[in-house]
Amino acid sequence: MQITKMKWIAAIVPAICIGLFEFARHKFLHVISMDWGNVLVAVLTGIIFILFSHGIFALMENLYGKLQQEKQETAVLQERYRIARNLHDSIAQSLFFMNVKIMEIEAAWKNQQEPLSAINELREAIRFADTELRQHIFALQTVALDDNINLITAIQNHLRQYEAQTGAKIDFIITCDNEIPFSAYERKQLFHIFQELLFNIRKHAAATQVIVSLSENNEAFTMTIADNGKGFVAADNLRQKQSFGYKMLEQDIRSIGASLTLTSIPGTGTTVTVTKTKKRSYRHDH
């Protein structure tokens, strides 16, 4: 039932029922005493209130169920888009590169030339694709295991996997409570942001050291990720909004009302800070 109809029912039905009962009571006053009439009015009012409340709560439960379903469907679509983009950025490009190298090996073989260089590049591309695929699978498993994730534990596990696969030195600094004071959706989005930042360090920075720090004060929670990689001209990069996974990053950050600051100098490294203001109450408008 639509809310508009419920509003009209709430306004009209109780008045009609009580009015009809009062009419009947006065019409047959010799049958129903005043005291019993008052009792029956109270009973009738209670019955109407119970029935109406039941309808209202049933409507609310139905709307809440639809909202939860829409949220889940939206989350699935977001994950599909994220996976498609990551696969395109890494696996698809690696496969294209491998195909090119195979053609170079075939051409060298036909021309009786030494294809060792192309073979080495092909081997490196296969290794890279295998590592990237494992990373994507791990990222999906990390989120899929528990929708209500513990942000610190999820980041620790992800960093441990990243360190094992890349050999980079990882420093994880925690100066906040173990329970991050945000909703499950906000924590999940913060983890997605962290994954995206780390993925781009791995893909573009060639860093040998990554420092991740989580801190908070009375007003905000801050996540900082710094690397000693190649760096880039940050202002130009932000204007282009293409590299650094900016589109998805911006969407995730906007969805939880956070902010991002980036500092980078070519040859020195990059530092990204994500700040999420604390609120007394949290709601997910998604």
Rank of each mutant, 00 (worst) to 15 (best):
R254L: 12
H30I: 07
V13G: 05
A258Y: 01
V272C: 13
E79C: 07
V43K: 09
C176S: 13
L190T: 00
N237D: 10
K66G: 02
F128C: 00
E179Y: 13
A75F: 09
Q251G: 02
A226M: 07
Q68Y: 08
K7C: 10
G167H: 04
T208F: 06
N217E: 01
L67W: 11
Q93H: 13
M60L: 15
V41P: 10
L262S: 09
L198H: 02
E22P: 09
V274F: 02
A10G: 03
L133A: 07
E196Q: 08
T74V: 02
I47H: 06
A168C: 08
H158N: 07
Q68M: 14
H286E: 03
S117K: 15
Q93N: 10
V210M: 01
A206N: 13
H54C: 07
G19D: 00
E132H: 11
K278S: 00
N148Y: 02
N228Y: 05
I173L: 15
P266R: 00
I149D: 00
I50T: 12
I12V: 15
V212R: 02
I152G: 01
T208C: 08
S183E: 06
Y64V: 10
R187H: 03
I201T: 13
S215Y: 08
R25M: 05
F172G: 04
E179H: 15
F244P: 07
L159S: 02
F199C: 03
L262I: 15
I265S: 02
R85S: 11
K241H: 08
R254W: 05
Y162G: 00
K230T: 04
L198C: 03
Q195I: 00
E121S: 11
T275C: 09
V41W: 09
F96R: 13
M223V: 02
S117E: 14
E132F: 09
V76C: 04
K188D: 09
I149C: 08
L249F: 03
W36R: 15
H284L: 05
Q72I: 03
G257H: 06
Q112T: 04
Q161P: 06
F191E: 00
F221Y: 06
V76W: 11
Q189W: 01
F97H: 14
S90G: 11
I9V: 09
L77A: 05
L95F: 14
I201V: 15
M103R: 15
F96K: 13
I56E: 07
D146R: 14
I211G: 00
N111D: 04
K279M: 01
I56R: 13
F138P: 00
T263C: 11
R280H: 14
Y162V: 00
I253G: 01
I105A: 02
H26C: 11
N178W: 07
F28Q: 05
A125Q: 12
A107K: 14
Q78A: 04
T74D: 06
N200I: 04
L198D: 00
H30C: 03
V233T: 03
L116D: 14
A108M: 07
E250T: 07
M34T: 12
F138Y: 03
F199K: 08
D147S: 14
L20N: 06
Q112N: 08
Q165V: 10
H204T: 04
Q165T: 11
D252W: 05
L140Q: 14
D236S: 10
Q78G: 03
T208E: 11
N111T: 02
Q113M: 02
T208V: 05
I102D: 01
S94E: 05
